[in-house]
């Protein structure tokens, strides 16, 4: 028994201790930091609500918060809608070989060079980039995309589409085919089958995909700053500015808390919705 305990401890203690010290403690310390004060650009341990008051009383904070929320919501809707036909095809129609290749092509971008891909989009959608050159060639004038809302959305879409497609696809592929066959036999049309059978059955994947898109967009810094131009700041841009220019870490920590709370709310709402049984009211 004693030896088992020693063995048990050797296995379990290192990973738990590591994550507690280097992940949990910093997160808790982030909360503590919101109560510290800054004097002459130096951090001072303190217990003051000034940071919370200053941030929550600032009108610009709500503007930025609302913008971030709306951007993330727009990105969620756009990616979910664009991803759905692709997931549908991969889940129901594609052959096994096509599927494997597609999954491979979707997993790779998730791990590769987010920053570099953003730069590449900057070049593509700039005023004399590929897209505008082609638009010019067919007689349509330049369309400003870089440093606009469109640019931000293009950034979000490229980064989240692969993940959202994978999550939706996993749910759709797991649907009982007999269900779809039954709908067909009952003369349910193609579109109606999708909305009456596929969408409800794949609810978990669709919701989790949407939640991921929202969370990633809500916390992203790169798309709004490098493709959106940074002139309409989001919460992440606000955090960076507060840290890098103002050196006000406590205030940045307050903004970070607002971010965490929002995302926990979204995750909670999404999970409640995804796993709610049909007919239940709450």
């Amino acid at each position: 028994m004693r030896r088992l305990n020693a063995f048990f401890a050797t296995i379990t203690v290192p990973p738990i201790l590591w994550q507690v010290i280097f992940f949990l403690v910093p997160l808790i310390f982030l909360v503590v930091m919101t109560f510290w004060s800054v004097q002459n650009y130096r951090l001072k341990p303190d217990f003051t609500f000034t940071n919370w008051q200053k941030v929550l009383a600032a009108g610009y904070f709500y503007d930025i918060y609302l913008r971030t929320f709306l951007y993330a919501a727009a990105a969620t809707v756009i990616t979910s809608i664009v991803a759905f036909p692709v997931s549908l095809f991969l889940g129901l129609n594609a052959g096994p070989r096509f599927r494997i290749v597609a999954i491979f092509l979707l997993i790779c971008p998730f791990f590769t060079s987010y920053l570099v891909r953003t730069y590449s989009w900057q070049v593509i959608i700039s005023d004399n980039g590929i897209i505008n050159t082609m638009l010019g060639a067919v007689g349509i004038g330049q369309v400003a995309m870089l440093n606009t809302f469109v640019g931000t959305m293009i950034g979000y879409a490229t980064f989240f589409l692969p993940l959202v497609i994978l999550l939706q696809f996993a749910s759709i592929a797991a649907i009982d085919r007999d269900l779809i066959q039954a709908a067909h036999n009952l003369r349910c049309g193609r579109l109606r089958t999708i909305f009456a059978v596929v969408v409800p059955s794949a609810k978990v994947g669709l919701t989790v995909g949407a939640a991921f898109a929202f969370i990633l967009a809500f916390g992203d810094f790169v798309a709004p700053s490098l493709l959106g131009g940074g002139r309409s700041p989001t919460l992440s841009i606000l955090i960076i500015d507060t840290v890098k220019s103002a050196s006000d870490w406590p205030r940045a920590s307050v903004v970070a808390m607002a971010m965490i709370v929002t995302m926990m709310g979204v995750i909670f709402a999404a999970l409640t919705f995804a796993y709610r049984k049909p007919g239940e009211t709450h």
Binding site: I16, F23, P26, F29, L30, L43, I240, W249
Partner: peptide, 27 residues
């Protein structure tokens, strides 16, 4: 609960994690 602590980091936005780590590492 312990497992959750271990696997939670990727769900925290990188920007928040970055700030938290900066605060902590400085200390």
């Amino acid at each position: 609960a312990l497992l959750a602590i271990i696997i939670l980091p990727p769900t925290i936005p990188l920007i928040v994690l970055g700030l938290a780590m900066l605060n902590f590492l400085k200390q």
